[in-house]
């Protein structure tokens, strides 16, 4: 990345420096941090930044994945590859196991995405994690735009958006009481485009479903979903093969794809730079339920 002659960092280098600072601060001040791996490009960029922050030492905390049982196989492959390469411990919190153990209730109506919250909070409590890194970015959604880098969670894992702690300069306050934890968002100030520039600049390995590929898909509520045993077709829906890519990656039943021929990072960047719809608006079924869907889920302790 470029260093300007007048000792100014490029915006991407400045974002990187800010994120690395956050990782180190948390590692220094919290007893048991964990990095939440969602499978998407953002959590992979987080892993890359964590790798850089502690190099040549290993990342001094484990990685936690909430396994919905509905994850893309390509994502799990990339996850294993990263965990292997970095030599970190992987903690898997399985939604299926949580349902089986009665930690969360699958009433057949609640989405897997929603059941993740209870599963996640249970895992955090069981393992005694005091800080959990999340890949949320403020440009993603209007409730996320309001959240601090250090986001305090009470005993119930809840976020109180009307009563956030002041956060001054880069002096982060990591004080918590027993039973509480802090969500940490090192990518707060990154935009979708920044993430892609960084993936390009650093040659970061991400799941290939982010690039154009042939896929059997069907249309529902104006979005294209992948054919999947977990997502039975409803009346009138038909499967066809299209050239698509994913703009976000989550639960296979809720993450839509977009028609695209972008098969390289440069092509993806070209596409996003002129995109007229946000990534969540275009591809996330879970954000469409109400105007404050994300705020409500975040209050409950969602990522």
């Amino acid at each position: 990345m470029t260093v300007h002659a007048d000792y100014r960092l490029s915006q991407l280098a400045e974002l990187e420096a800010e994120s690395i600072h956050i990782f180190r601060e948390v590692a220094a001040e919290f007893e048991k941090p964990v990095l939440m791996f969602s499978g998407g490009k953002d959590s992979i960029v987080m892993m890359r930044l964590a790798e850089k922050a502690f190099f040549p030492a290993k990342i001094p905390f484990p990685v936690l994945q909430v396994d919905t049982g509905y994850d893309f196989p390509e994502v799990l492959e990339t996850r294993d590859h990263w965990v292997d390469r970095l030599g970190v411990r992987l903690v898997i919190a399985s939604v299926e196991a949580a349902i089986a153990n009665g930690v969360v209730v699958d009433d057949g109506k609640t989405s897997r995405n929603r059941l993740q919250t209870g599963t996640l909070l249970h895992a955090i409590e069981e393992e005694g994690f005091t800080a959990a890194f999340g890949g949320g970015r403020r440009d993603e959604e209007k409730a996320r735009a309001k959240e601090r880098v250090y986001s305090h969670r009470d005993d119930f894992g809840q976020w109180d958006p009307k009563n956030q702690r002041p956060e001054l300069w880069s002096l982060y306050n990591g004080r918590i009481h027993a039973g509480e934890h802090m969500r940490i968002f090192p990518l707060s100030n990154w935009t979708e485009l920044d993430i892609w520039y960084y993936i390009g600049a650093e040659e970061i390995d991400i799941p290939n479903i982010y690039f154009a590929h042939q896929r059997r898909v069907f249309r529902r509520d104006n979005m294209l979903y992948s054919e999947s045993e977990h997502n039975p077709l409803r009346r009138g829906e038909t499967v066809e093969e299209r050239t698509v890519r994913f703009r976000t990656v989550g639960d296979i039943t809720l993450t839509g794809c977009v028609e695209s021929n972008a098969d390289t990072i440069a092509a993806v960047i070209g596409e996003i730079a002129v995109a007229r719809v946000t990534e969540r608006g275009e591809t996330r079924g879970d954000d469409r339920f109400s105007e404050a869907a994300m705020e409500d889920r975040k209050r409950e302790g969602y990522f």
């Binding site: 960092l9 915006q11 991407l12 935009t191 485009l193 960084y198």
Partner: peptide, 9 residues
Amino acid sequence: MAGPSMDLL
């Protein structure tokens, strides 16, 4: 469009 090397305000 935000180039990677532009500066930040």
